[in-house]
């Protein structure tokens, strides 16, 4: 009887300990970086939740009800999926649209927009639009909203709908840095 009791106590104790143990601490295997620092293993599969390239495209051109889909459609598939609805949206926003300052008609302009990628030049000036260069990147100081408004509402000469082509917020409220990490320190 005594031995059984000891046995039972042991069983209960282990049950108790098992119940009480915190979640096992994940044993992480360490690998080494090029600089010799130990790094953790990064396993697992990551699945797309959100994406972005040019500013405010989803906000301006994607119809409500399609925003989730747009956020998870691969750029290579965006053109065929969204060009026509973008064109309809453009003409709804600006029924008088003919062409814009880039000389693009509605179909051509929305074909460019619907494949939402940001083109960046590796050979010189990078800017959304600086009067000379167009869509060669996006710097922090670019007034991208005004550029988009101008292309949507401004007509071929950029002179149409003057109340809609400038939000009158032309610069950031804190100066950017000339060197890395370029963005201003937080408020």
């Amino acid at each position: 009887m005594k031995s059984i009791k000891i046995l039972l106590t042991a069983t209960c104790l282990s049950v108790f300990l098992f119940n009480c143990s915190e979640d096992d601490v994940n044993d992480r295997n360490f690998a080494t970086s090029p600089e010799g620092e130990p790094i953790e293993q990064f396993d697992g599969t990551y699945t797309l939740e959100d994406q972005m390239a040019r500013p405010a495209i989803n906000t301006v051109f994607v119809n409500s009800g399609s925003k989730d889909t747009f956020n998870t459609t691969l750029p290579a598939d965006m053109g065929s999926a969204f060009q026509s609805s973008f064109e309809a949206k453009l003409l709804a926003l600006n029924p008088g649209y003919t062409t814009n300052a880039l000389g693009l008609d509605a179909a051509t302009f929305t074909t460019v927009l619907a494949t939402d990628v940001l083109t960046v030049s590796l050979d010189g000036t990078t800017t959304f639009f600086d009067g000379t260069n167009v869509l060669t990147g996006r710097t922090l100081a670019d007034d991208v909203i005004n550029v988009e408004l101008l292309l949507i509402f401004g007509g071929p000469m950029g002179a149409d709908n003057p109340g809609l082509t400038n939000d009158n917020v032309d610069a950031n409220d804190k100066p950017f840095l000339n060197s890395f990490p370029y963005l201003a320190s937080p408020w």
Partner: peptide, 14 residues
Amino acid sequence: LIVLAIFTSCKTDT
């Protein structure tokens, strides 16, 4: 019996 014993013993514990 053993199962019972374990059960009751554990029960008393908690």
